[in-house]
Every structure is written in C-alpha cells, then in structure tokens.
Design a protein around this nucleic acid. Structure first.
Lengths: 174, 174
DNA sequence: TATTGTTATACTCTATAACTATA
DNA sequence: TATAGTTATAGAGTATAACAATA
C-alpha cells in the first residue's frame, strides 16, 4: 500500500455510490419490467399507482412524487385511465387542476404487483442477512428522501439514520 | 395503528429496495450526465473507461463488466477511440477478438471525471454520517456483486457483509 | 401574466436480429 | 458449426417547447 506506484496515486474512481446506483437501478428496471409484464404494468405506471395509494393528487404533485415531468405523466395517466386503474376529475376549487384518484381495480392491480415485486426484492438482496437487508432499505429510503436535490438540500440539517441494528420498523405506514 | 382498517391490511408496497433503486438510479444518471458534460463524457463511456483502468479486456468481457450488450458497446468504443481515450487491437491468439486498452489520455480524462463524480456522491449522501456512508457503499457494492442475476445466484452461498461499523477499507484496490 | 395540463417533436437509450470474419 | 465483433433497425424512455384553458 506504500510502494511508490508509477501512476499518480491511482485516484478515486472506487465505484462510488452514485455509480453503483446507476448500475443497480438499470438492473432493477429490467427486473421490474419483466416481472410486471404478466400483469400489464410498466415500472412507471406502477410507481404512479403507488403514489396514489394513500390519497388522490393533482397531476403536478403526482409528477413530483413519481419523479416524471408533467408531459410524460400525461401519457402514463392515459394508459392507466384507459385500463380503469385511475380516474381524473377536475378540481372544483381550481378548474385548471386534474385530481387523480386510484380506483378499486387499481388497488387490486397494485396488490398483484406487490407480490411480483417482492420476488424481485428477494433476488436483489438474496445474499444479505435480514439485518443487512433492513439496513440497506433504511439507507436507501433515507438517501431517496434527503439526498442531493440541489436547493432542497441547502438549508437542510436532517440527521443520518445511523443504522445501528436497523430496527424492525420496516413497513411502518409507507 | 390497530383500529380495524377498511382495506385488506394495506399490503406491502412499502417502497422496497428495487423500487428505490430504480428511482435513485435515474437520479444518479441525470446527475452524472450533467456533471460529465463539461469534460465530454457520458455515464456509459465513463463506466467503460473505469473497467479498463486495471487491465485491457476483450470486448466481450468488457461488455459484461459494464453491463451493456456487445452491440451498444461498439458505439461506445467508437466514441472513445475517436477521442483517443482507448485503443482497439486484435488479439494475436484469436484474431476474432479485439483487445481494448485505455490510453494515457484516457487515464487523464478518468481523473477529471473522478473529481466531478466525487461531487455528485457528496450531494447524494449529504445527509449521512461518515459511518452510514461507508455502510451504504459497502452494501451497494455487495448487492451489485452478488445480487440477483438468476442462475448465477442459484448455487451461491456468499456471506452477507453484516456491516457492523463499516471498516475503513473503502477504496481498497478497486 | 402565470399556472395546469396537453400535444408535438426530437433525442437518447435499449433490445433484437442479421451480417462478417475468424475459429 | 460456433464465436467475436459489427451493422441496422425498431422500440421505449426522456427532455423540450409550444399550445389551450383557467386563474
């Protein structure tokens, strides 16, 4: 580790977190696409349904939640609505807004999807102990909620989860 | 938390690991693309350079390492080669093979890219403690190496890292 | 004028199959 | 025949700007 290497100390490039995420993300998308095909959903459509699970949302908020811009969201919602999985209605308080709500059929589809997804997750974390799985999910969730995002993060001072043993609060209420 | 919910126990869908990865992966790709643009690289091109850092590789192995199929790798290498960042030469032992090697210019470009990427990583894990960052990277790396991948995982029995305090071996030799 | 949703368009990424040259 | 690399093509995903309706 200290034998005067010929190259300039062979700098970083140690496959950092973001680099690993791009790779694992693509793997996940492929797995999701395959796992969801039998039930007629694509990853984005599912993500949209998930965000609508707890409450109806106007398209703007929904787009932010799913992380797609307004233009592509239109197409996703057209697909979902023509399959009867969601409904759009105008907001009486501001008639520019369309409130999107998941339907009962949509909830059933969501349940099917959950079963398929559980399998993907199982494969993904196959080699991890239950403790490490919990830690992993906790960290992913924290980073997804607090990470990066330019301005948003500027004035922030949230505290790292510091996952000691990754408590059992896995599926809390989310 | 126990008031006889109207819905069937509101099943999983707790934003599992693979779902979070798809999202973080897309965020990472966007950040990478923006951060690398000034130095004339795209995420895939960089990933290719990284895999070539330690040793020249035939295109087949390189494609597996970067996780792109042979067809798209051709385009990536054309770009890199026309910029003088890599060289292709025939393998004398099997003239079907093309051995790809990174050039000195390529290594310089790699160093520039590393600096840009470090910034993305910093933003990504901004809210995490150093311990959690180490844990996070360790888990990502383990999952990336051992996770899923169908057959490959069948007969495996590797041991989970069980990151207690996430030792300081961050940038080992990778 | 600003905002919400929509449409249209172009650009990138990805997957597939067919082709060549070597073995 | 089988394999390594290449080419061509179509499909999906993504980003952008212009537009209509409403505020």
């Amino acid at each position: 580790m200290h034998g005067a290497p010929p190259l300039p100390a062979q700098p970083q490039s140690c496959t950092p977190a973001a680099s690993l995420l791009t790779r694992l993300g693509r793997w996940s998308v492929r797995q999701f696409t395959a796992a969801l095909k039998p039930i007629g959903l694509k990853p984005r459509h599912l993500a949209t349904l998930i965000e609508l699970r707890n409450a109806p949302l106007p398209q703007q908020s929904l787009g932010e939640a799913v992380d797609v811009d307004a233009a592509q969201l239109v197409g996703l919602l057209n697909d979902l609505e023509s399959d009867g999985l969601v409904h759009r209605r105008r907001d009486p308080e501001d008639r520019r807004r369309h409130i999107v709500e998941i339907s009962d059929v949509g909830r059933e589809r969501l349940a099917e999807a959950d079963r398929a997804l559980a399998d993907v997750d199982a494969r993904l974390m196959a080699g991890l102990t239950p403790e490490d799985r919990a830690r992993f999910v906790t960290l992913l969730r924290f980073v997804a909620e607090h990470g990066g995002f330019e301005e948003e993060c500027a004035g922030r001072s949230d505290v790292s989860p510091c996952v000691a043993a990754a408590e059992e609060d896995e599926c809390g209420s989310l």
